[in-house]
Design a protein around this nucleic acid. Structure first.
Lengths: 225, 225
DNA sequence: TGAGTTTGATAGTAATACTATTATAACTGT
DNA sequence: ACAGTTATAATAGTATTACTATCAAACTCA
């Protein structure tokens, strides 16, 4: 099977982890470990033990664990954009594209065999629990200048343009889409841990509920007037 | 002037900081320091130096710096709910209440002399930059069981009830309000650091834009059908 | 074969997030 | 005014974290 690979911003890593076995092990195992321990408890030392390597070796791939997290999240956004492209490509109307897009955003994430050595299900849990930590730091501006958030930004831009195509007078297309992208993951977190803050429920139907909720947010807001 | 004080959940602290001068110094100075350094760089050691005390003394008030952050955020939500009460109390229609409520959420925060030793402007910046770190942890469930998030939850519940009063058939009132409360702070962060993700702008008009955006989200969504 | 690169092994450091102990200062009640 | 309690400061110490440095073994490819 021909496996695809994403070309991520080179500032996200010191040495490209996709190119070597050690690099791939770092990615594979860090997804598992961050998912299991949470980002705070995750250390390069623990990771090194798990893959039978050393801290020093991991530092040759990633400057620090924060960069590694940014890399993983960057990978996630690339993957999501790839999936959105896949399901909107054949559609011609912006409204249809948006509908399909919301579906992809809200759907339950499944393992994607197109991409080796990444467990998308665990990575999605990492997104839900850790995304905000990638940019809620004092270095956000210099990180941004290096293009570390281009995955999220390009996705937001692409979807916003469909919104503009439907209603060019709506003044907040980017705000609306970034709100929806973040709300999608927040509501999943709340469903699991702070259920009184949401209504999407704990069962599998929550993905359908989430889709409905995001759809009503999106279309009612842009269709108004 | 008679100063009010909020009764916060007792699990947020080991000894009540509002009761002693040292405690008040801890609060006052930690707001300044977390605002300046960011939560990651903030330590009890640095705080102790600033207030001419010791780490050990601070640990008598707060189990750790994470609890201190949760305390400050808890205080913020109490303050916001108090302000919302203030501006909605005289109104009878739920729609009017919601409108006033959005205004309070979106408005530029100013120093509130009702509450001594808390700089609400700096505290609001802390909310914007650090809120998510209070619950995006592996201990979220036990923290929640101790009631550490009751400030946010009670606010969300109160506002959701007005939504239900307007449209009892809308299936996602809590999801809508938690999304709006979080979007308010996210959009302010994006305006400062990742401006392509928002449209509220960098100038003072951004608070008006934010209010408009949140209003359109809220009312278009609940008024539909 | 041999030069260059990648990795593993080992060591070390400064800072962090605490805990423990003790002495003294400050306040409390009779 | 004095004994008893409590709060605080001072000091010390620990395990862990987030790195950095050095060097030799292994593997790569021209």
């Amino acid at each position: 099977m021909a496996t695809l690979a994403f070309r991520l911003n080179t500032h996200l890593f010191t040495r490209d982890p996709q190119q070597t076995e050690l690099g791939q092990n770092i990615i594979r195992k860090s997804v598992e470990l961050i998912d299991r321990l949470g980002f705070e408890q995750f250390t390069f030392k623990k990771l090194a033990e798990e893959i039978n390597s050393t801290e020093a070796s991991i530092y040759r791939y990633f400057e620090n664990k924060h960069r590694l997290l940014q890399y993983l999240i960057g990978w996630y956004w690339s993957w999501l954009e790839y999936r959105i492209d896949l399901f909107t490509n054949s559609l011609s109307q912006p409204r249809e594209k948006l509908k399909a897009c919301i579906k992809v955003i809200a759907e339950e994430k499944k393992f994607d065999a197109t991409f080796d050595f990444i467990d998308e299900v665990a990575l999605h849990r990492i997104l839900v629990a850790e995304l905000d930590k990638t940019y809620l730091t004092k270095q956000v501006d210099s990180d941004n200048r290096e293009g570390l958030f281009s995955g999220f930004k390009s996705l937001c831009k692409k979807i916003s343009e469909w919104v503009i195509a439907i209603n060019p007078d709506f003044p907040f297309p980017n705000a609306l889409i970034s709100t929806i992208l973040l709300s999608a993951k927040q509501q999943l977190f709340f469903a699991d841990h702070l259920p009184s803050l949401t209504n999407i429920g704990k069962e599998t139907t929550r993905y359908i509920n989430l889709e409905q909720f995001l759809e009503s947010l999106l279309f009612n807001t842009i269709d108004h007037k």
